[in-house]
């Protein structure tokens, strides 16, 4: 096993690796567009591409249940929610954010700094680590479901309560304008 690990090199990538890198490039490109495009609705659509690409990456990592959940919740629910939000805040289709170069430069500096630091640390730590895939039972729905309801059942239930609270909170916050208004004035 160790010998096998040592033999894996970066110059002879496997097919899964090639696919992972290609999809990763798509993900990163669309993510960049999400944070840079002037048009708000476009950003939401590029977010769909990013999240979908990530779902594909999960599949490549043999976490199939996560991948489907990703597609269902993120692409199906969250993005739709965000689009609703954009529409409710009356963002026009062609709305373009005003250029704000004064904020971009420090943002870029901080982001690049963080990225560089993390990259240095992680590459230094996991240069030779190899991920053995192929045991496709690990990420299957059955395995995940069993561990979730055997080991993680208590956090799961707590989380359901959290979701309920968030649901109620969201309803209360967005329900009545006058109620919220008077409440704010107290």
């Amino acid at each position: 096993m160790n010998l096998a690990v040592a033999e894996h090199g970066f110059l002879s990538p496997t097919g899964a690796e090639i696919a992972f890198v290609l999809i990763g490039l798509v993900v990163l490109g669309s993510a960049l567009l999400v944070v840079t495009t002037r048009q708000v609705v476009h950003a939401a659509l590029w977010l769909v591409v990013t999240l979908g690409g990530l779902a594909a990456e999960y599949l490549l990592l043999t976490a199939e249940f996560i991948a489907w959940v990703q597609v269902l919740i993120y692409v199906g629910a969250v993005v739709v929610l965000l689009l609703f939000g954009l529409m409710l805040t009356k963002a026009p289709i062609g709305y373009s954010e005003p250029p704000d170069s004064a904020a971009r430069i420090p943002a870029a500096v901080v982001a690049l700094g963080a990225t560089a630091t993390l990259l240095t640390v992680i590459v230094d730590a996991f240069r030779t680590a190899y991920l053995h895939l192929g045991d496709d039972t690990v990420g299957s729905t059955e395995v995940t479901g069993q561990s979730l309801f055997k080991v993680w059942v208590l956090p799961f239930e707590v989380l359901s309560v959290l979701l309920l609270a968030a649901l109620i909170g969201a309803i209360v916050l967005s329900r009545s304008r006058s109620r919220a208004h008077s409440g704010r004035k107290d």
Partner: peptide, 10 residues
């Protein structure tokens, strides 16, 4: 698959 690929992506 090298672990570095998903980590760098992240």
């Amino acid at each position: 698959m090298h672990l570095v690929y998903p980590l760098v992506l992240a």
